[in-house]
Design a protein around this nucleic acid. Structure first.
Length: 426
RNA sequence: GGAGGGGUGGCCGAGCGGACGAAGGCGCGGCGCUGGAAACGCCGUGUGCCCGUUUUACGGGCACCGAGGGUUCGAAUCCCUCCCCCUCCGCCA
């Protein structure tokens, strides 16, 4: 949620920065500006009337206790109240409208974010590792996985439809190994491991920005009014919602493994094969809650912490900075990690690390008290560390051998009882 | 799922129709006492919004006692609905 005071004070500048994401949001902003002005006028009237009512009510009570009931005063009070009720309804309506628009306006891009329309305008920051050279035609991970007997898309579909997979044997074990490997790495760097609920209330999703705008992307349990989390960012970032933290407690570093559930509405036909885009996938998430002045430094460190996973697994990747048009709803600045995928012959997203500044904190009333006693909104950051399914896919493809077998990355072997290679089933 | 009890400030806890943003205690901060500290004494200590000014301060106002609605001139206090927590019973990984 954007800061109303900022909108009031620096209207033109906010408008300009928001328009970098796309012109459609500027209309919403104009609406907010107008409604806010109206709201404050009505609010002033309401509060003045209320003050009058309070004063006169006390007066009436005082008289009554003295045995002097004043019928005229009573009538006057009733009139004030009627007036007040009308204005209050108006105020409530304005507030609802204002909130409606405010909740649907995305975060402002940080001034350092490259201006651009979409993916093609993202900027590569650095590369690590070399894409492997094969002396044979590399196979896509879904073919490898099926030949190895560790991925079963057919049975996934039998159980749950398209975009679901069953992982068996070493496939299942690899998932478990990857999760443990990632969590161990992050906790060794000071992230606290958390296990969170996978079903959350609507206001939690409003807090991180998935609602109200992206309802159709979520799985919902209608009867209980709960949603399946699309990422662990949601419960992790909301952990301290509506709290006022002590400045000394910050920064907070959290990591959690959860499955993630996404309806993938509007992605029909895209990445229909393989582990790239599923309705249910596993992810280890990193979340930071920081002081305002620290968040950009913390973002750089967060990206490095996510990169470390790929480095340890010796998977080639690059870091790109998202342009204004490609930024997610809540993010002010985002770096994507893209891993090399031989079957696509290009880099594909495996992690997304964002600084949301105070955008989410404002929505969830997450604050901290400074040493001089001021309450400020925290800055929240999140990043994948990493998407487990895509990591598995990247390992299968990058470590494949001519005979269809796959070498296990060294860092992972201790988590698999020392197994060094997966061989195709006869 | 059934029966009962309860949600008040950072925490504990009183208040059960007006002087209550809320006693008292703990905690925290400041000052005093002290060589220093403990103990003690005094003072202060919630959040959000709106308005004004000499605009990182001060003054004024409004709201908030789980949430929403109602009764009343007036609600933390009475009534209704919902949510959450606790205890017991049932069921259960």
């Amino acid at each position: 949620m954007l800061d109303l005071k900022l909108i009031r004070k620096n209207y033109e500048e906010v408008r300009k920065r928001l328009s970098l994401r796309g012109e459609e949001y500027v209309k919403l902003l104009d609406e907010v500006y107008k409604l806010d002005k109206q709201k404050r006028e009505i609010q002033k009237e309401v509060e003045n009337l209320r003050a009058l009512l309070n004063r006169k009510s006390k007066e009436y009570g005082r008289l009554k206790r003295e045995g002097k009931e004043d019928e005229n005063l009573k009538k006057e009070l009733t009139e004030i109240k009627e007036n007040l009720q009308k204005l209050e309804e108006e105020l409530k309506l304005l507030e609802e409208k204002l909130n409606y628009y405010l909740l649907r306006i995305p975060n402002l891009p940080h001034p350092s974010v490259p201006v651009g329309e979409d993916e093609k305008d993202n900027v590569e920051v650095r590369r690590w590792g070399e894409p492997p050279k094969f002396g044979f035609e590399p196979k896509p991970h879904w073919e490898l996985g099926e030949k190895l007997g560790i991925l079963d898309f057919e049975r996934g579909a039998k159980l749950s439809g398209s975009r679901f997979v069953v992982k068996k044997g070493l496939g299942a074990r690899l998932v478990r190994a990857l999760i443990n490997f990632m969590l161990d790495l992050h906790t060794s760097k000071g992230y606290e491991e958390v296990y969170v609920p996978h079903l959350v209330k609507p206001e939690i999703l409003i807090g991180t920005g998935q609602l109200p705008k992206f309802e159709e992307d979520l799985f919902k349990c209608e009867r209980d009014n709960l949603y399946l989390i699309p990422t662990a960012e949601v419960p992790l970032t909301n952990l301290h919602r509506e709290e006022i933290l002590k400045e000394e407690e910050l920064p907070l570093y959290y990591t959690a493994y959860t499955p993630c559930y996404r309806r993938e509405a509007g992605s029909y036909g895209r990445d229909i094969k393989g582990l790239i885009r599923l309705h249910q996938f596993d992810k280890v998430e990193l979340v930071k809650i920081t002081r305002q002045e620290d968040s950009y430094e913390e973002l750089e460190k967060l990206v490095k912490d996510a990169e470390k996973v790929l480095q340890e697994l010796e998977l080639p990747y690059r870091v790109v900075e998202l342009c204004t048009g490609d930024l997610g709803f809540s993010a002010a600045k985002t770096y994507d990690l893209e891993v090399w995928m031989p079957s696509y012959n290009r880099y594909r997203e495996i992690s997304s690390c964002s600084n949301c500044e105070d955008f989410q904190a404002r929505r969830m009333k997450l604050r901290y008290k400074t040493k001089d006693g001021k309450n400020l909104y925290c800055h929240t950051l999140n990043g994948s560390g990493l998407a487990v399914g895509r990591t598995l896919a990247a390992i299968l493809e990058n470590y494949q051998q001519g005979d269809g077998s796959v070498i296990i990355p060294k860092a992972l072997r201790p988590y698999l009882g020392g197994i060094e290679v997966i061989k195709p089933q006869k």
